[in-house]
């Protein structure tokens, strides 16, 4: 189940999008997300849709693979649609029993569904084309100004990359401990909520102990390799903007301006 989530997984491919600087991609993704809440009308919708299709095509990630990521939000999607459909006041379209669907409701539901779907698809382009390390590097660089107001940007990004490295290890470990306790007759699925919560103790205690032990070991290993924070640190793969990044920035800003213009004009 945990393995089905495609958000946050890297899909290796040789594409322009893959080669962009992570900072560029972060900026692009940000503008794209904002644009989803700005666009209005058929023209805006067309602009956003075409851009999304264009970017997905450029990224060379199979469309089917992306759609799988949507599975995770199906429930949220359905709830949003239902709420918008039935609870928007306005001119009634269909009426039955206590329910009433309005034109406005239909429109709202449609737009919300599109927004959510596009949001997930668009941001998964970012995560699928950027390795976790690049992503954290990008964030560290992009957020560097925050250092001035004493936010430990380097430490935060180091924590993020370590978390990303250990997530698969801890998932595997959870599976192992679960099996070991099952072999001792434990049950994780049956019973009411309280019983279920209680049955997690034999799983969570060993998991936490293991996580702490690993954290301790890792801290020692990092120290032994001369880690002493971000100061004076060099990089194997420093981020450097290239010409295509400038082009990408220009295109994103252009796109964003376009969506705003469409909103004002139509």
């Amino acid at each position: 189940m945990l393995r089905d989530i495609t958000i946050g997984q890297y899909y290796p491919a040789d594409s322009v999008i893959h080669k962009l600087d992570p900072r560029t991609k972060l900026m692009g993704a940000l503008l794209y997300i904002v644009s989803l809440f700005v666009f209005r009308g058929v023209a805006g919708f067309a602009a956003v849709t075409l851009t999304l299709i264009f970017i997905i095509a450029l990224s060379k990630v199979p469309f089917g693979y992306m759609v799988r990521g949507l599975k995770a939000i199906v429930v949220i999607l359905v709830i949003t649609i239902v709420f918008n459909l039935f609870l928007t006041p306005g001119e009634p379209l269909v009426e039955f029993w206590k329910f009433r669907i309005t034109w406005q409701g239909l429109e709202n539901a449609g737009f919300m569904a599109v927004r959510l779907t596009y949001l997930i698809l668009g941001s998964s382009v970012l995560t699928l084309t950027t390795t976790p390390n690049q992503l954290t590097d990008g964030m560290e660089q992009a957020l560097k100004p925050l250092n001035k107001i004493r936010i430990p940007v380097h430490e935060i990004s180091m924590m993020m990359s370590i978390a990303l490295r250990f997530i698969p290890i801890l998932i595997e470990e959870t599976d192992k401990i679960m099996k070991a306790q099952l072999a001792r007759g434990a049950e994780f699925e049956s019973g009411n909520l309280i019983k279920k919560a209680k049955s997690l103790v034999p799983l969570l205690v060993p998991l936490f102990i293991s996580a702490f032990r690993r954290a301790n070991d890792l801290a020692m290993a990092m120290e032994a390799r001369c880690y002493h924070g971000g100061q004076g640190r060099t990089k194997m793969k420093p981020l450097r903007y290239k010409r295509k990044d400038a082009a990408a920035y220009l295109l994103s800003v252009g796109y964003f301006a376009g969506v705003i213009a469409l909103r004002i004009v139509f």
Binding site: S161, L218, R233
Partner: peptide
């Protein structure tokens, strides 16, 4: 498992030299 820091082999090997500048 508890002494590999990065998610890519070469980036992990680079960790030490990065720290010493």
């Amino acid at each position: 498992d508890n002494q590999i820091i990065a998610s890519v082999v070469e980036e992990d090997v680079a960790f030490g030299p990065e720290n010493i500048g």
